[in-house]
Design a protein around this nucleic acid. Structure first.
Lengths: 216, 216
DNA sequence: CGTGTACTTGAGTGGGCTCAAGCAGGGTGG
DNA sequence: CCACCCTGCTTGAGCCCACTCAAGTACACG
């Protein structure tokens, strides 16, 4: 991660003007097409990256979790590429883009690392979409993969976002997602947990989910 | 494009060891998991970037055309991310990775440009996959979008790759692709052209295709 | 406790997948 | 030069999964 890969001494001189922020559910970090103002290190929670289609709908392209950096792909562009929206409670630190650019300019090694991180994001996106694209892929498998992807860290906790969001990510309808999840719950490999609208998550049997996600 | 964005004077000192190569149909430029040896500027033709799935199949993730640079995403990694295979006749210039890295190191501005290019690749991938993901998207629409994407430059020529390749890209079966294309041909908005195995392409009525591709 | 949103569940339909033949057409060998 | 074959493409019939439409239910929040 960008923030933690550099020594504290290096960062301290640039942390001036960097603040920690909290975002409630559906809070907007930044909006697509707007001028780039900052990048954000996600300290806790999850953030969805969306983009509006010409026809008014919006599609979820990626979900960032603890440790990811939001807005990185727009760091050297004029305007943001996506709209970033908080899922549940999010804690993030906001790094003004001017600081960020100055910081990067001062540490050439960091530029290479940014390139690698960018390449990693591309690879991840490709892997993800290629996993969802297969038309022969049954809905249950898609949902299992989606759940695995929404895992928080290495725990058995899974970020639970709305059915519509999951449906948009998996490329299937909300009803189908609902049916698949109901099935998993009946099987006992998935448990709803956290009743409040802000701390929603599942507890999942990861090995079982991986087994279902297996069939290519 | 990286090669042409810099002045000839800047390049000339680094072009030592850079050669032009020709690749016949299905010629391999480089292979996934192998050590990175070079990046390639595509001078003519098209190249498909593939990745093998755990189950032995391979999926086409992107298609590079004239003016693109192959292997860029692996330029600062140890091994190649994809396997690059020529579609039809391809002309490319091979830039040894050592040269490339030395060159980039010498021109800091270029690093920012590489970051932007990397971000552009990510955006393109996201746009593309999100266009294909919609499960409600009819096969005809998918194929129309695919064809538009395979357009050579701004002409009415469309790179014609195998049905299986197109099927892999659109996330549908080869039969369905065949039916859609047959329909387009019957409608007269698509014409097969170039009989040899190397110079295969369509001639397409772009406005008509765009109209079909429209419905989000 | 009421209200609204999000989720669940059901019945019926249809588009694309599967399976299974036919059909070019170009490359190879006689 | 022609016949063959082999790969890639086309076309058809039937089925199944996921979508659509439409209620009904749970649950969070005021």
């Amino acid at each position: 991660m960008v923030c933690s890969d550099v020594s504290l001494d290096e960062l301290v001189g640039f942390h001036v003007g960097i603040d920690a922020f909290g975002y409630a559910n559906l809070g907007i970090l930044y909006q697509a097409e707007f001028p780039v103002g900052a990048v954000y290190c996600i300290r806790a929670g999850a953030v969805k990256l969306m983009k509006s289609t010409p026809s008014g709908e919006h599609r979820i392209l990626r979900v960032l979790k603890t440790g990811d950096v939001a807005g990185l792909e727009s760091a050297f562009a004029e305007t943001y590429e996506h709209t970033a929206v908080a899922i549940g409670k999010v804690q993030a630190c906001r790094i003004p883009i001017t600081h960020f650019r100055r910081f990067v300019a001062g540490y050439p090694d960091l530029q290479v690392r940014l390139l690698q991180k960018s390449a990693a994001a591309l690879r991840e996106a490709e892997t993800w979409y290629s996993a969802m694209l297969g038309s022969g892929t049954p809905a249950r498998v898609r949902v299992a993969r989606l759940l695995l992807r929404l895992r928080a860290g290495s725990s058995d906790r899974i970020h639970r976002l709305s059915l519509d969001d999951m449906a948009a990510m998996a490329g299937i309808t909300r009803e189908t997602v609902s049916r698949a999840i109901s099935e998993f719950i009946r099987m006992g490999i998935l448990v709803k947990s956290g009743s409040g609208m802000n701390t929603r998550h599942f507890r999942g049997d990861m090995p079982a989910l991986e087994k279902i996600a297996q069939p290519d």
